[in-house]
Amino acid sequence: MIPLSWYLTLAAALFCIGLYGVLARRNAVAILMGIELMLNAVNLNLVAFWRYVTPTVISGQVFAVIVFAVAASEAAVGLALIISIYRRRATVVADEINLLKW
């Protein structure tokens, strides 16, 4: 059986990639994608811990399902906002969306 640390390492790698995407990319869609990666890394952790630590309790899977739902709605709202901004400003670059800045 694959040890737990592999899963955790994979999840940490995924999280770091997502974090890098969020911090470094200028495209709003890419930032959103980075967030999805970070959420999925968390999901991976949750499921791994459930399977290896408390396989008899269902709460780990429930957590994962809730995170899916949140991620889906977040993606829907985020993409809708981005499309709306694009229609007005013809850009999806986060730095150029500066309407409320001083």
């Binding site: 974090l19 911090l23 470094a24 930032i31 986060a94 730095d95 001083w102």
Partner: peptide
Amino acid sequence: VQTGRVQQYLIVGL
């Protein structure tokens, strides 16, 4: 400090 760029805030937060 208040650059208005969310990514920089995130870095600080990180």
